[in-house]
Design a protein around this nucleic acid. Structure first.
Ligand code: MN
Ligand code: MN
Ligand code: ZN
Ligand code: ZN
Lengths: 138, 138
DNA sequence: ATCCTACAATAGACTTTGTCTAAGTCAATC
DNA sequence: GATTGACTTAGACAAAGTCTATTGTAGGAT
């Protein structure tokens, strides 16, 4: 993740303890945390960090294209550091666990002109739902 | 939509002016209103209807499988009366206009076992994004 | 090394969306 | 037309997010 911090400094980002901690918390695979979850984890390392700063920093990371907003459930937005490899999501309907997935095919090609209503279609998001191994066992 | 009202009465629904108005407001094609939009339109016909009743009624319609919840944007949930014909959504990234669409193919078949992480996958939602004719012209 | 200042962080008020409760109302049955 | 349990209501409450005024500081200038 220090690649990320380097890149951001190159873009004129002022480096602060708060921003470093937010970036660290987002590090990893299949990470899709809400803003409050990011805040809770950030507070462990930097107790005085505020909610507003977490929201501000996440918003900047999204603007810079380094983090994606994901709306897989109907509650809070989730923040996804896997912004450079296109992917979709597989969500457990029971516990909410989210995996990054890479389906075959191109869903854009599956939408015929007659179903486009004159729209210029540029993007598609696919959300698979089911039960994770843990929840299926229970 | 009086088919709907008949069906609901058959299921033991007590018929009230409030429920009738909510059902009427949801009538139509490509309808995807937020709870507050439903309330605003319901108030025109029945000024004393409360927000709580709109939320309650929408929740019941969802439980009964007569209306779907849709989370195309990251703001309020939207309520979709087109619950009996499976479909996906095409959303204008600028003005938010939503169309019901029926793509070819089966995205479930496009998710290989190696990308399922042991999940039992049962459902998939596809959201296409782009610009509607109005917004593309401007 | 110190100073300076524009940018960043903070607390907390405010907004939006949604849920819950206690009290009053009424649709459907008798 | 009386009864009653389901329904509606207002408003309190909660969760998620935004905004503002104030204070703090990173990093360049001296
Ligand atoms: Mn992801
Ligand atoms: Mn729809
Ligand atoms: Zn699960
Ligand atoms: Zn549009």
């Amino acid at each position: 993740m220090s690649d990320l911090l380097e890149r951001l400094r190159g873009r004129g980002w002022r480096m602060t303890a708060q921003r470093r901690v937010v970036a660290e918390v987002l590090n990893g695979d299949h990470v899709h945390l809400t803003a409050d979850e990011v805040h809770a984890r950030a507070v462990v390392r930097l107790p005085e960090i505020s909610r507003a700063t977490v929201y501000n920093t996440l918003g900047e990371l999204v603007s810079l294209g380094e983090v994606l907003e994901v709306a897989t459930d109907k509650r809070a937005k989730r923040y996804d550091p896997n912004a450079h490899r296109p992917h979709h999501h597989l969500v457990c309907a029971q516990c909410g666990a989210i995996k990054d997935v890479h389906p075959d095919g191109n869903p854009l090609a599956d939408l015929p002109d007659s179903e486009r209503f004159g729209y210029t279609v540029s993007n598609v998001e696919v959300t698979y739902r089911g039960l994770c191994p843990n929840c299926a066992a229970a």
